[in-house]
Design a binder for these strands. Sequence first.
DNA 1: GCAACCTGTAACGATATAGGTTACGCTACG
DNA 2: CGTAGCGTAACCTATATCGTTACAGGTTGC
Lengths: 106, 106
Amino acid sequence: MSTMKTTTEKSMVMHNPPHPGEVLRELCLEPLGLTVTAAADALGISRKTLSAILNGRAGISPEMAVRLSIAFGASAESWLNQQTQYDLWLAEQNRKNLKVRKLSAA
Amino acid sequence: MSTMKTTTEKSMVMHNPPHPGEVLRELCLEPLGLTVTAAADALGISRKTLSAILNGRAGISPEMAVRLSIAFGASAESWLNQQTQYDLWLAEQNRKNLKVRKLSAA
DNA sequence: GCAACCTGTAACGATATAGGTTACGCTACG
DNA sequence: CGTAGCGTAACCTATATCGTTACAGGTTGC
């Protein structure tokens, strides 16, 4: 599902955003030469939990966003927004299957 | 985050954001004279679920954000961002209790 | 070879949330 | 009174986070 091309349509922002764990690994762990084990320990979470995030099998919870902001310094909001954009992209894939009536043309 | 009052200080956004259901009720249901029952029906969800959202006992899920965007026209992103900001504000309240080591001064 | 790591991940349990159905009590109104 | 709308409790299911433990595979170095 992540390897679609589909750049031919109206080209809304269909960018298939990377899951935040991918960004986390490339922007935080690798530059600092951190192992998954060491980073998980610093974040105060289990290695399993961090591994799940890094490999896209878990999302960044609000609390995790705060942890990341403490450890790596970026704002918790930026971490959480990455997750939100990713979750929203997934939900949008199913938009046409939702049975909803328009109530306003706002 | 958009409702800052520019208090001249660094002033982190400690505004205790309203839960998104409050905004939903005031900006969508009331202006259209919609009952909770009617709105829930239009959204394709149960009255219980909408009631929970409106009264702050449930959040706006990614799928619900898409439903709201169909029914009321605002972007799904704007609906979901409201929820994210609220969840983050809650998580920040517990920041000081998290045992996390700083790894970078980025 | 072998020991020491690092890693992904399966298995299991605990906890939390979203969502549905059903049902109860309350309020407002014609 | 009867009806409509509302909040919400009870109960169920599905999913998600997070933890611990354990296993298998890969590196690296002695």
